[in-house]
């Protein structure tokens, strides 16, 4: 059988002295769309960060495209959307400038060519932001920021898309745009790992859901139907790290 695109086995990781992942198994095969679900603080972002190499694993194994993570160098195959509420930095930047950063996965230290500019334009069109290309990202709404961050990942023209809460703080119109952009990527054959709070408009795209609770996988299979109602109330998804102590720990999705 073909190598899985992501293969995480028995992964453990700690932040500070706190064990956050406690033996996570996660396999994503080529062409699959997998949703990673769970309450705030259950370790979803940490799992995703460890997959893209931002958080070191303290145990377990990780392979990307069949290559052990430590030896993996083909970052142009991966598009990453970090968990963010803004695309802005300390200096003004246009939508196009931010999205162009995605092409560095292909150009690295080399110059930007016409194909790179075309890929950026295509990514902007996919998320419906082509007409805002010259606007400052400071002038965008939350949903538009998220669209820019997704366009930046799409500009890589990746085989694997990893998105951490791309729908957080996103208005309904933007959610629809993102869902259709994602649909096109999936039709193109992309593999997708998505961190979500609720399936929402993406539900028809999702092949499989993996649910985390307290750093452990408690469900791996068809997307749970009731997830929207359970995950929704009383959570500030926009600032999920703000105050973990205030988070009720037992808001597991399947409990």
């Amino acid at each position: 059988m073909e190598q899985p695109v992501i293969s995480l086995r028995g992964a453990t990781a700690s932040l500070g002295s706190r064990p956050v992942l406690r033996g996570v198994d996660l396999t994503v095969r080529r062409g699959e769309v997998v949703a990673l679900l769970g309450a705030n603080g259950s370790g979803k972002s940490t799992a995703v960060c460890s997959i893209v190499g931002q958080v070191p694993l303290t145990g377990g194994e990780l392979e990307l495209f069949g290559t052990p993570r430590r030896r993996f160098r083909q970052w142009s195959r991966v598009g990453y959307v970090p968990q963010r509420t803004t695309a802005a930095g300390g200096v003004p930047a246009t939508v196009r400038e931010v999205v162009s950063a995605g092409r560095l996965a292909r150009t690295k230290l080399g110059p930007s060519r016409r194909a790179d500019r075309e890929a950026v334009h295509k990514a902007l069109e996919l998320v419906g932001m082509a007409d805002r290309a010259k606007d400052s990202v400071d002038a965008l709404s939350g949903g538009q920021h998220q669209r820019v961050l997704i366009a930046r990942a799409l500009a890589v023209e990746p085989e694997l898309l990893i998105m951490d809460e791309p729908m957080a703080g996103v208005d309904l119109a933007s959610q629809e745009v993102l869902a259709s952009a994602l649909r096109e990527e999936v039709a193109r054959g992309a593999t997708v790992l998505l961190v979500l709070h609720e399936l929402g408009p993406l539900e028809p795209l999702i092949d499989r859901a993996v649910v985390l609770r307290d750093g452990c996988v408690v469900h791996d299979g068809p997307p749970p139907k009731a997830v929207g109602q359970h995950a929704l109330p009383g959570h500030d998804h926009v600032h999920p790290h703000a105050d973990p102590a205030a988070e009720p720990i037992r808001t597991g999705l399947l409990s």
Binding site: Q54, P82, A93, L104, T107, L109
Partner: peptide, 18 residues
């Protein structure tokens, strides 16, 4: 372009393999 990327979003820049 490279310095812009690392100063704008260092975490993302690392995942581009820069």
């Amino acid at each position: 372009r490279q310095l812009f990327a690392i100063c704008q979003d260092e975490e993302f820049a690392r995942v581009t393999g820069l």
